[in-house]
């Protein structure tokens, strides 16, 4: 899972699409054409910041059937770990970037009778390709998209032009909220709901669906979390017999990579399970930030997902 599997792309176009959101169009810069992908996929973009390497996942926004270029959108987040700032400040037309092959952890349920898509803000991104796929399949879907204001709502016009009455936009500055309870009432049996957006919104949508009597099997969510910020600590590695310092704005995985230590990873969002690592000892408390380990595994303190989780304490010893 290291650099040899990355693709090189060139930025062909940068377009501001809403306040604080830029869209980047990427074309292949190596010998291979870009891969086909499925609706809901993302790629991981590697950013060589002056002091460190940042890798962030971004949803592919274009139509899955168009592989002449990939499109990603990046919301600039103030005071974050620097990935979005890097994309906004240092990436321009002609910049070459390394990206992973597409990975899909948020696919539409192909067995569904109807798809209800619920997006908040930048959470619209995975639905862009998903709607392209559903449209091509002739599937029944509707989008409910909440934004702060029309100025913050990327793609509202484009979506309405493309999908018409299936698009419902709610402007928070006009006092409009997604009437989710009403949306979920009287949907046909076999409807599936998908939600992507900020964590409080996801929690609210999941709770609303459960209270409407929707089974867990029909509810799906995706959240792109950056690894949370915390205090520095030390990672001790039993196999390579090394010690690495993890900075406050770094994940364990990033700190290992910066020190040239290979560790397995895939999604970098605590979802796929690839970077599951055994804990030999921990001088402090593990702050689990992943969606992969079970509650029992988290409580055991024997496993950690190094892409997202960190510790509050002095040191952790890992079987790496």
């Amino acid at each position: 899972m290291t650099a040899s599997f990355l693709r090189t792309v060139r930025v062909a176009e940068v377009e501001p699409v809403a306040s604080r959101i830029k869209r980047f169009r990427l074309v292949s810069a190596d010998s291979q054409p870009l891969s086909e992908f499925s609706g809901g996929s993302h790629v991981t973009v590697c950013m060589k910041a002056p002091d460190r390497l940042i890798r962030n996942p971004y949803s592919l926004m274009g139509s899955p059937s168009d592989t002449s270029s990939y499109q990603i959108s990046v919301l600039k987040v103030e005071g974050s770990r620097g990935g979005s700032e890097f994309m906004h400040e240092r990436v321009e037309v002609g910049t070459e970037l390394e990206i992973s092959e597409p990975l899909n952890l948020f696919p539409p349920a192909k067995i569904a009778r109807k798809h209800i898509l619920v997006a908040g803000g930048i959470g619209i991104t995975p639905f862009m390709s998903m709607m392209g796929e559903l449209e091509a399949l002739g599937a029944d879907f509707e989008l409910h998209y909440g934004v702060r204001s029309l100025g913050d709502g990327a793609f509202c016009k484009l979506l309405e032009a493309r999908y018409g009455k299936r698009i419902h936009v709610y402007l928070q500055d006009q006092g409009q909220l997604i009437p989710l309870e009403r949306v979920l009432a009287n949907q046909p049996l076999g409807s599936h709901m998908y939600v992507c957006g900020p964590k409080p919104m996801i929690d609210w949508a999941l709770r609303t669906a459960t209270l409407a009597g929707w089974p867990d099997e029909n509810i799906h969510s995706e959240q792109f979390n950056a690894p949370p910020i915390g205090k520095p600590f030390v990672v001790k590695l039993t196999k390579s017999k090394r010690e690495v310092r993890v900075g406050g704005h770094q994940s364990i995985l990033e700190a290992l990579e910066q020190n040239g230590i290979d560790a397995p990873f895939l999604c970098r969002g605590g979802a796929c399970g690839q970077c599951e690592t055994s804990v030999a000892a921990c001088d402090g408390f593990i702050e689990h930030n992943d969606h992969y380990l079970s509650d029992a595994e988290k409580a055991s303190g024997k496993k950690i997902m190094i892409c997202m989780s960190r510790i509050s304490g002095d040191a952790i010893t890992l079987d790496l």
Binding site: S35, E36, S100, E101, P102, L103, L266, C272, G273, Q274
Partner: peptide, 11 residues
Amino acid sequence: LKFLLNMQHGR
């Protein structure tokens, strides 16, 4: 199963 779920295109 865990291995297969994380399989990537082209590999």
